[in-house]
Design a protein around this nucleic acid. Structure first.
Lengths: 201, 201, 201, 201
DNA sequence: TATGAATGAGCGTTCATTCAT
DNA sequence: CATGAATGAACGCTCATTCAT
């Protein structure tokens, strides 16, 4: 399986790239650092990824795929429909706590508007949306969510809002303490309940 | 009026810097580009701003001050308490549409964790929070907002959520169309009503 | 006395320049630092000194004049001819310990060959040589120095050698300790006695 | 022989660097000039030397190694012990005449106190001292040098004095002519005999 | 005479990308 | 497939000097 060997190496490089990005920051990391971390030659890196931007996009795709997998795991555990919704939001929180890189990637793409989502990037984004949408639709059908809720809109809105809250939590810790006296987790809990309140029937 | 002449030039440079940042992106813009845009010599730029980071911080301060001014103007026009809250959120929206740079700046400082907010930067951030808080407190006192609402938490949460939504609107337009069929404005309207619903008594 | 007022300011700037050169080093100091130290405007500095190089030359002239003055004081105290010669060499040592800048200046001019001695610089150099020469000639005439000593040659040689030794003392302290176990002062003493031994009759 | 090819290029760059330093001066030379002289790209220079300071240190090491090699050659030719000592001093003279850069390098590291000698730099300096010391010790053991001579002290002193004299010769030619009428070589000869006189038994 | 804002060539260094082997 | 030496444009920043006021 030559095929699998190549894929394996690709995965290894991707993991090293994640590590380097986490360590050095999305604005500072260099291709050199990745090459060193992965213990490969400069040219080899360009054999697998055609540019720095491409590598960044593929790391992002992987991160989003990981997130989707976690969504599925965590919602699978829950019986109640609204708990599944809560699980989605808490997973975003925990995912960010474990691998803050993910949220950096989101923000990075937002700041660098001219980096347009690649096809693969869009595709996994859509898969995430579709999954969240299915959770919401089921909850609605089961009557646990207001009849007049536009689930598609809500699905996207949850994504936007939770990213915004996570960024705030991540960078405005002092302000958070000073104004609310709450921990990050308590603050995020308040956010989740605000969302749930506004949709529950 | 020597004073005013220097201040005038400073303002001019700041405006050129804004333009360049908008055009080239916060991660890509160069001091050279600003120098060229402002039609001044390299050294002159460093006469007014001691480093690239300093310049960035001062542009951010200016943007936040502009935002606060707009908050005051727009809430001043409204009679109803909840309309004042709506005005805050709509102002963020319009402000971003006119000067999308502002939201990038917010996110930028969030992505670059080790760029610590300067004193001036923090101070204006707090002034914004305090202003929004006063609006919410008044609304609560007047009985238009639920008794059990934690206004300080809400104030911060509104900031986080609206930034997240604005980023999403800005970068995921295709997704927005595909999933909801809504315009940016309609989508943002839904967001505002979700917030209002969850706080009104 | 407008004249004296100008001369006074010139002297003040010169002293500030010395201070800055001592503090920041001959290779690192900037005209800005001098302007700040002397509390004058940039343009004013250039009113008194036509360039950085000119300023450096004039500081050097002043340093050499100070050295010559000290030579005269210290040799004046001594009765014995050979003690006067010793006094010359010890004065170089103490002068360097108090104002190491002097030796830096010497070295600086040596490293920067294309900085040619200005007329004023040469002139004070010659005055120093003539003074040392007169000390040596008197000692020779008094029979305390070998008859066949070429005093002019010796005078220059003493200058060269003591500068070399002072530089070595200044920068190779570790080597000095490791190889000889001597203090700077003891080492310099050995040097002086080597010189005296080789000329005394 | 990949190894040798890299070493060869390193040597070539080192030689070009020497040439540029000689031409432009140790305080003025730029990395750009070296790149141009060696006809390589800017980045290539940094592939071989990690900074300007590193390059300077390595050029100095090379110069000192060359000097030591010459010391060994020239002393090897001589039968008499004192002629070996003379050979050391004459070698310094000739070495400086051929590659005046060497003495500048010595002085440069002395002027720039905070450029600490790297390990390699110190090590070759010590090797030189040890070699000279061995010459002096042999001469002493053979009874050609005074019994009470401290050879370690003398070894260092010879280094210091000859550097001082060479600098003087190099930069005070006019003074030398005017005061002594001697050529550089004759003057240096006088210096050597002064040293020899003061140590011979 | 004194000022200090303005200049701009120049610096050391980095790094994404290429290509001959 | 893999290598890693080589590239060179671009970067943020400095500073001696000038000149209009």
């Amino acid at each position: 399986m030559k095929e699998s060997k190549k894929a394996q190496k690709r995965r290894k490089i991707l993991e090293c790239a994640e590590e380097v990005m986490r360590r050095d920051g999305l604005n500072k990391f260099s291709m050199d650092a990745i090459v060193k971390e992965a213990d490969i030659a400069k040219g080899t890196l360009y054999l697998y990824f055609k540019s720095k931007e491409d590598l960044l996009a593929q790391v992002t795709v992987k991160a989003r795929e990981d997130l989707l997998r976690r969504f599925k795991e965590e919602t699978g555990n829950k019986a109640e429909h609204l708990d599944k919704v809560r699980a989605i939001l808490w997973t975003s929180y925990h995912f960010y706590k474990e691998k803050e890189l993910y949220n950096d990637l989101v923000a990075y793409y937002e700041v660098n508007r001219n980096l347009e989502d690649t096809d693969a990037l869009q595709e996994v984004g859509e898969r995430i949306q579709l999954f969240v949408l299915s959770i919401l639709d089921n909850a609605k059908q089961a009557g646990h969510v207001k009849k007049d809720t536009n689930t598609a809109t809500l699905s996207l809105m949850m994504w936007g809002m939770s990213n915004g809250i996570l960024n705030l939590i991540d960078t405005k810790d002092t302000l958070l303490q000073k104004f609310t006296g709450k921990t990050k987790q308590t603050f995020y809990h308040s956010f989740i309940e605000l969302v749930i309140d506004s949709i529950r029937s």
